[in-house]
Computed example of a mutant assay.
Amino acid sequence: MDSSLVKMPDTVLNTIMESLDFRSIIVDPKSPSDDKSAEIKYRNHKKGCSTVKNSGLKKKKQLRGDEGFVDFFWNDFETIMRHQKQILQKFSFVLEHYEYKFEKMQTLKQFSSGILERLKTLLESRAIPLKVKEIDFGIVDQNEMMPVLPFIDSSTLERISIGNSKGLGPQNLKIDQIVRLEQWKHAKQVEIKNEFWVSEPINRFAHFSKVEISINTINTETISVLREIFKTCPSMNHFEIYYEPQNQDLRTLFGHRFDGSYEDEDSGARWFFKIPDNEEDKISVQSNLFSWLRLTRVKCSDLSEKRD
């Protein structure tokens, strides 16, 4: 959100910066080469709230009043969000769920629920949806995305990234609510990190240009759907799947011999298939045979150069 601070109205920005004494992060938005990023952390202190600003190699601490750190953070965050008009390059929202207690015996999950409700209310109250290019979630289930994602401007959103914030190994992730949102339908790229297995049908991802997901198992039907997506969806360029290790050699699932192969200097052997009625592109297949598969759309001219 550093770019938003640069481009906020002066009166709003001055109010926040004076209380934080963080004027050094304000730069001329017309000079991107001089841009300075800063990280501001809000922490509990025995006298209330303290803030820590990290900017490059510099660190500055400040004690702020006798209220809790959450109240101070929300006052500043709400002011920024209510006036944010420029497109954010990235909005990252991570809720870490570990089993320890707060002072009032309130678990972190309960605390997170309050944060989500306040965030939803804030985003709903905006005159226009929040403009973001990339949104990054750290969650335990899709319910933690629903207070945020529906209020992002679908016309600017390009990439959705989802990770598991619980840290207990791979878990199943339901996304049946998420895939119905306009934000999902308009995004160009999605990554669901391998701490999560997804069970939604593969064709739910057909409109993206780049997909990276993990599933529990892979079979002949999965391969068939993937090949059909590349044949019928010109926008699909990259589909990468991680899955539970299995003893079957993945190449046997393709049903017929490959149309050719060559050694890729970075990823080992690569095979490719022809696309009917398409003389320019082929489907490239890379795999470690037992737990990873990547299909990409490649130009035939590029293949010819590699084989010369």
Rank of each mutant, 00 (worst) to 15 (best):
T121K: 15
K174Q: 05
I115A: 06
G260K: 07
Q171A: 12
V70I: 07
S31R: 12
T121L: 12
I241Q: 01
Q248I: 07
K47I: 11
E182Y: 00
K61P: 01
K231G: 04
K133G: 11
A127W: 00
G268P: 07
E221Q: 11
T15V: 12
R257P: 14
R180C: 07
G255P: 01
F290K: 13
D176S: 14
K36R: 15
I25Q: 09
P32I: 01
R294A: 04
R23G: 12
I160F: 01
K101W: 06
W184K: 02
T15Q: 08
S33W: 10
Y98S: 13
L57I: 14
H186I: 00
E182I: 07
I162P: 06
I192T: 05
T217I: 09
I135Q: 03
H207I: 02
V94L: 12
D141I: 00
R251D: 14
L122K: 07
E182R: 10
L250I: 15
Q189C: 07
Q248H: 06
A38R: 09
H207W: 03
L250P: 05
L253D: 02
P245I: 00
Q84K: 09
S209E: 13
S301T: 14
F69S: 15
T222C: 05
G169E: 11
K58R: 13
E96C: 12
W197E: 12
M1I: 11
E18M: 08
K47E: 15
F230W: 04
F273P: 09
E158K: 12
F196S: 07
